[in-house]
Computed example of a mutant assay.
Amino acid sequence: MTATPCSLPELTSRLRAAGCVFAEEEAQLLATAARSPEHLATLVDQRVTGLPLEQVLGWAWFHGLRIAVEPGVFVPRLRTGLLVRQAAALARPGAVVLDLCCGTGAVGAALAATVDGLEVHAADLEPAAVRCARRNLAAAGGRVYEGDLYEPVPARLRAGVDLLLVNAPYVPTDAVDLMPPEARLHEPRTALDGGADGLTVQRRVIAAAPDWLAPGGHLLIETSEPQAPRLAAACADAGLRPRIIGCPELDATIVLGAAT
């Protein structure tokens, strides 16, 4: 283990040398999180060897909330805030929400903190993600299920979901190895790899969505700008009315599919 710098300037220098772009901010966060000099040494060593800052700290800041994060889970991105904003514009108290491919449950938790009285459900394939989601959705009374897409979701929710929120993997398989090391080495491949064209998992979600949406319900699914037209076409093929929504400020794109 490398000796840990004893001052913030020294800590900042070490982080900057390791390639951390926001070294000053990270130094302050790590110093604040550390319970002792020994703990700080551990945190710094984890960070300089490439572990994402959020996994080192144990939390990520997302849409005004601290979201619990464990090593080996997908870290919520700022761009996904567009999904929350659009869902909040559609949500009504008492609405049934299903956060599919939920990861840490950040989307469902943020929406529940924005709109009162929601019934929130979430599902993910990864056990570590499910553990985090249960922590993050506990305050909202959310229920989290482990399994592949709709498979673990209670059958009683069929035709009863008002808002189906999805951040499924959409990186093409050949592009995963081109992602930053923090993602490709420390996040589960199942949360990144969307198949040959990036849309394999999303197409599965869309194909079954009409069976789960309530009349007048909405599917909101994150994607990339180039992929959005194909995803919108998939929604139309499934009988949903599609609309593409983009936010240049967040570099974010979602496709909204409305049920009749």
Rank of each mutant, 00 (worst) to 15 (best):
P181L: 00
E126Y: 00
F74K: 03
V73I: 06
R184K: 14
L53G: 12
V75N: 10
G103C: 09
T223L: 12
L256D: 10
L29G: 06
Y145K: 01
E126L: 10
E10C: 08
E119A: 15
R241K: 06
E54C: 03
L90C: 10
V107P: 01
L157V: 04
T114P: 04
L231T: 05
A159H: 07
P188E: 00
V161P: 05
D124N: 08
V144Y: 01
L100R: 08
T2Q: 14
L149E: 07
L220M: 10
R134V: 02
V69S: 05
A109E: 05
R66A: 15
A3E: 15
D45S: 10
L256Y: 10
L90M: 11
S36N: 06
R135N: 01
P210G: 09
G72W: 07
L220S: 12
A228S: 13
E10G: 15
A41L: 00
A128E: 03
T104S: 15
C132Q: 08
V21D: 13
L256A: 15
P215I: 12
G72Y: 03
G64W: 06
C20L: 14
A175T: 02
D162F: 00
E70C: 01
M179C: 03
A232L: 02
V255T: 06
A236Y: 04
Q46M: 15
I254Y: 11
L164P: 11
D162L: 05
A259T: 04
H121A: 13
A209D: 12
G216A: 09
T42E: 13
C20Q: 14
T200Y: 01
Q202M: 15
L149K: 07
P248V: 07
L98H: 06
L125P: 01
P9H: 05
G105N: 02
L178W: 00
A128R: 09
P71K: 07
C235F: 04
M1C: 04
D99M: 08
L43D: 14
L8P: 12
A91T: 05
L137Q: 02
V153P: 06
L220N: 07
V153L: 08
Q86R: 15
G64T: 08
A259S: 14
E70T: 00
C6P: 04
C102G: 08
